[in-house]
Each structure stands twice: as C-alpha cells, then as structure tokens.
Write a protein that binds this DNA or RNA. Structure first.
Lengths: 125, 125
DNA sequence: GTAGAACCTGACACCGATGTGAGGTTCAAG
DNA sequence: CTTGAACCTCACATCGGTGTCAGGTTCTAC
C-alpha cells in the first residue's frame, strides 16, 4: 500500500510516517518513480511505534527496541544487547514513576471533579 | 524562605520556580528589595505542581486546578466551575489512555529485557 | 497525452517546560 | 563600607514529534 493509505489505516499523519522512516523505525520499498510502498505488516509496526512514543520513549530508543520485539513474522530478534537491556531497565523505572504520578494526578482530578458534581446543596434537597 | 532554599528543598530549579510564578501557579511575597519570599506551605505546593506536570497537564490547567485542591490550610476551594470539571474529565480520559500505553510498553520492555537476561543457551545446558 | 490526485524532498514553525547567560541589584556578614 | 553570594529581569536556546508550506515529480484514469 502507499503512504496515504497507511496513514489512513493507522491514524498517523503522512508527515509522521516519513519521519519514522527517516529515524529508521519504518522501512519502505520504493516504486521506480520513488513513491513509498508498504507491506501489510507496516500497519502493526506503526501502531506499535505509536504506543512506544505515547509511553515517552524517544525515536532512538524505539529504533533500538523494535527489532527485539517478537512479532508474528518471527524474524531474527535475538539482538538484545546487554547495554540495551540496561537502558530499557532505566526506561522501565521511568515508566513506573510516571504511572505513579498519573495515578496520583488522576485521583486528585477525581476529587476536584467530585466537588464540582455537587453543585449547590448537594446531599439532600 | 527564599527561592534558593525552596529550590533546594523541592529539587526544582530556580528557573522553574520563577516560571511557576509567571504562570500564576505559585505566589510569593517580596522583600523591600524585590527578592521573593516564600511561606513554608510553598514546598507542598511546588511538589504538587510537579506531580501534575509529570502527569502531562499544562500550566494553564494546573493553574485552574490548584485552587480547587483541598489542602490542609482549608482555603476557599469551592471554585470548581462546571466547565473546568468538563476539562478535567477529558484530562482524566487522556490520563487513562496514557496509563494503558505505559503498561503496554512496560510489558513490551519486560519481554525484551527477559530475552536479554538469557544470554546464550539459557534453559538447560 | 493530459488533468488532477497523490506523492516527493527540504525547510521552517510550534509547543512548553527548562537551561543558560548577560548585566545589574540586594542581602548578610565581616 | 565592602565584598561575595544570592537574587533580580530579560532574552534567547533547546528538544522532539508534528504541522505546514513551497516547488516539483509521479501515478492513474480518462
């Protein structure tokens, strides 16, 4: 498929898809004229990239993690370096802290929302 | 206390503290000479601000939420507008989605880390 | 062969919290 | 007083993924 279709299927902008390629996250064949051509698997890959980005990984980290992820096509994914593993454990800790902050913030918001849900003279009326 | 001490106690840079003030998140008295002077409560407030930032709220949202948070000083915190509540619920959903992404990413990382922890010929030998 | 959609590269803008540096003032202690 | 640390304001830089525009080429369908 071409880039427009991939964008549509994944909900990711064309701009971003080109950026993913530039950063080495997403490969593409080219037509003789230079247009990008993607295999069907690309959809999954883009989705995965988005999830990793949403978790706060930067493109460099994503690039190093992606080839180590076991996906259905069972490619050669044994490349997990020890130093990469160290980086990922640091990343993991960061994620844990972030989750903790999010949960705390969520309950703060819940409290605030709750007080708003009781406009004036709540309890009995 | 002065800004340097507040920075040290909270682990937040002086620059950031000034920024919080500029955005209306943190108030300060001024000495006759113009130096900022903070009450002890400021420490708590700064910590709270950090948590909210870490959860991805922007300074505007933090500014609108802060006065609605019930803290020990029991100030007048009934200002929760209905429209604010709406914003916060949207924010809450975003947080939920983010947590979901983080959890997914964390387990991806765990998998990758696990394969690295089994260098060569793991199981039996 | 031609029109129009889709694509290409390259470059610059943005957001938002924070870093950093210049140049000047205030504070506290001797 | 004087000195050095701490503070002040103002302004510009940064990072990273994404938006967007410009100017040009390719593809598809008629």
């Amino acid at each position: 498929m071409r880039i427009g279709e991939l964008a549509q299927r994944t909900g990711v902008s064309v701009r971003s898809l080109r950026y993913y390629e530039e950063r080495g996250l997403l490969a593409s064949e080219r037509t003789p004229g230079g247009h990008r051509e993607y295999a069907a698997k690309a959809v999954d890959r883009v989705v995965r990239i988005q999830v990793l980005f949403a978790a706060g990984l930067d493109s460099t980290t994503v690039a190093s993690v992606l080839p180590c992820i076991h996906d259905e096509d069972g490619g050669p994914n044994e490349l997990t370096t020890e130093s990469l593993a160290r980086d990922l454990m640091a990343e993991r800790e960061r994620i844990d802290r972030t989750i903790a902050d999010l949960v705390r913030t969520r309950s703060i918001l819940d409290e605030v929302i709750a007080t708003a849900a009781l406009p004036e003279g709540a309890g009995a009326r």
